[in-house]
Design a binder for these strands. Sequence first.
RNA 1: GCCGGGGUGCCGGAACGGCCACGGGUGCGGCUGCAGACCGCAUUUAUGUGGGUUCAAAUCCCACCCCCGGCUCCA
Length: 461
Amino acid sequence: MAVILSDTLTRGKIELDLKTNQEVKIYVCGVTVYDYSHVGHARVFIVFDVLRRLLIKEGFKVKYVQNFTDIDDKIINKAKELGVSYKEVSEKFIKAYLEDSDALNLLRADLYPRATEHIDEMVEFIKGLIAKGHAYISSDGIYYDVESFKEYGKLSKIRKEELIAGARIETNENKKNPLDFALWKFYDQEPYFQTIYGKGRPGWHIECSAMIRKNLGETIDIHGGGEDLIFPHHENEIAQSEGLNGKPLAKIWMHVGLVKFGKDKMSKSLHNVVYIKDFLKSYGPNTLRVFVLSSHYRDQLEFNEQKIKEAVESWKAIEDAAYSLLQPFNVTYDDEVSDILQEIDLAIKDLKNDLNTPAALNRMLRASKKINQMWTALKLSKKMSEKLEPFQELFDIFGFKLKEISPSEKETVEKLIMQRNKLRQEKNFKEADEIRRKLLSLNIKLIDTPLGTFWRKVEVL
RNA sequence: GCCGGGGUGCCGGAACGGCCACGGGUGCGGCUGCAGACCGCAUUUAUGUGGGUUCAAAUCCCACCCCCGGCUCCA
């Protein structure tokens, strides 16, 4: 069965099937590296991570490229503020991004192209646009001539005349038309790049067009990002790439809804961001995934305490089920598990239907509850656990991951549990409870059953 | 002005034509040395208003009444 995705450009659904798309080329607009990444960024990357995992599971070959914008006014301003070079700023936050990415268990991209490493490609691109009459050189830079591209506005459904009427576009006497946007800006001051057009720096949109062309080709399968990129960023990319190549830039345009903090958009300029690293300190990566995936990717998502709390509870149930399957009892039950397998099967179908993660997560939660019920009833046998292998596959598509346990940690915990059980036999409950509290502070949860004491390392208590 | 998203039980919130969503809170019960964790039951046959299509609608169509986001750098 094909994977169906919504397309912003046509406002319709487009299928990806193995017959026509053995390889799926995906380009997602990454971050501008002048600050740490926040929950809004995490949402986009988690959504695309699940999409990748799903496509791979379905047998597609996926090439995933995500850029770093590593030259930009914000980076330069930050560098001035800190009294360091712009390179130091960008390197620092690229490193921070990758740390967050790993902490969130995001699959690494196949390629992380950087703007500063593609100056030549951008210049080539601009040269091509000038030759085709889509760009012109002005006194302070090189601009894209929006009038030359008839379809301008097709992605955001904005008509040129109306935008100008809205007067929200910065006017600049060096532009022919207020909507024209900079491909290249002339600068004499550091940092600049020396090119055939003189000293300067690239405009924001050109990097993506140039890097896509170089690394993925003229037409890619999926181009994505946050919905705040639809206009002007992606609109301008279309104007550039299609203006030069004369071919569609992407078959599918996927946009992830914004994360709101209270009623406002979570954004650095509004100073209401929750950084990924801070969220992870209080909760954990799986909780964030559950939070993000419990709403549909195209809807806006409000970040609030109650929703986080709900995500915590949902994750606990899923985590417990995963542990339950890893800790089957040495019993001979072989109960029917087809209802659980069916939920899992339907969950995967939901994912293939425009990445319907809330529905799929819901089914996974139901499956988890059933597994936990069997476990609590001491009826989950090894054989049943083996039959429930698809649960683990779904767990992996969602990108969940149990806490890691080192061998020495395991040894320590098991030693303490033996001590505690001895104390319990001696009815020395006070000291036994002391050990349990100690383990709890290490995120180790104990479960006493008639068949022994089990322990699980959990993300949240 | 333009583009887009909503109005669901005590509360948050899913559901993209058919399956008691799920969770929080509250209450009762089970398990347990206690506690925790876990489990069960109840609150809960809820879908802004009025029409229409359908065997079947929260879901599709029309009208109306209210909310909200984006349109400037942004994920």
